[in-house]
């Protein structure tokens, strides 16, 4: 039995009177790719962001790599350095070149030499296909290129897991593919991933497990084949009929 990397136990969160996470239990094994889908406002982004404590939770526990999430402070910063995060709006540092975006973490957080950080950054940028953009600023790149740079930035920290919060939702349709390709190859390399997305194709072919959320509840989880072929809950059937009929 593989040891789980991420464990959420009875997690609850409220935004004021809005109950956005209701008793969520989720376990992600090492090397597993879990895709979280569900209607807007179902709490899936909040769930994703709670794993590295960008959102705090009101009750329950989240355990990463055998240790409960620390409170604010250095311990939390260390944990975050081990969890890569990719945002819907890329959030590349606007004042830095792509290369400096990728090397900032390794140099300042890990204390790596500039030389070593730069070499690995270049290798990563080549891997995501934008090595030739390294000296440009984020605003000079297309959305797809920016998101691939953001993935390289997260990978430069050599994280134990990667969180993707709707990584393709802000992209023009023709750029979605290039980002999903990078994510698929990461998944194939055995990276532990939690992916919040509306890309049903990606969920079908890259996920080990699909998690369906609605109204803050984790409604069902199953293998992609099972989930898409034979959803058990009414809400999942309803959701799928809406997103798949076109």
């Amino acid at each position: 039995m593989p040891e789980p990397l991420i464990e959420l136990n009875a997690v609850n969160k409220w935004f004021g009177s809005l109950h956005v996470l209701r008793d969520v239990n989720l376990t992600v094994d090492r090397g597993e790719v879990v895709v979280v889908i569900g209607p807007s406002g179902s709490g899936k982004s909040t769930l994703c962001r709670a794993v590295n404590r960008l959102e705090t939770i009101d009750s329950g526990t989240i355990v990463f790599d055998g240790k409960p999430l620390p409170e604010e402070g250095r311990a939390l910063a260390r944990l975050r350095s081990e969890v890569g995060m990719v945002f819907q709006s890329f959030n590349l540092f606007a004042h830095l070149t792509i290369l400096d975006n990728v090397t900032l973490g390794p140099i300042k957080v890990r204390g790596e030499s500039k030389q070593a950080a730069r070499e690995r950054a270049m290798a990563l940028l080549d891997r995501v296909g934008i090595g030739n953009q390294a000296l440009k600023h984020p605003a000079q790149l297309s959305g797809g290129q920016q998101q691939r740079a953001a993935i390289a930035r997260a990978l430069a920290m050599q994280p134990k897991a990667m969180l993707f919060d709707e990584p393709t939702s802000a992209l023009d349709p023709e750029m979605v593919g290039e980002v999903l390709d990078v994510m698929t190859s990461l998944a194939a390399d055995g990276m532990t991933m939690i992916v919040v997305t509306h890309e049903m194709g990606f969920a079908r072919h890259a996920a080990r497990r699909v998690v369906f959320m609605a109204d803050g509840e984790l409604v069902e989880q199953a293998s992609p084949a099972e989930f898409f072929g034979n959803p058990r809950s009414e809400r999942a059937r309803d959701f799928l009929s809406k997103v798949l009929q076109h």
Binding site: N52, L54, L79, S81, V83, F93, G105, V109, A154, M157
Partner: peptide, 10 residues
């Protein structure tokens, strides 16, 4: 911007 920096462990 600050969120991305935090998520890197800064």
């Amino acid at each position: 911007q600050a969120e991305a920096a935090r998520s890197l462990g800064l």
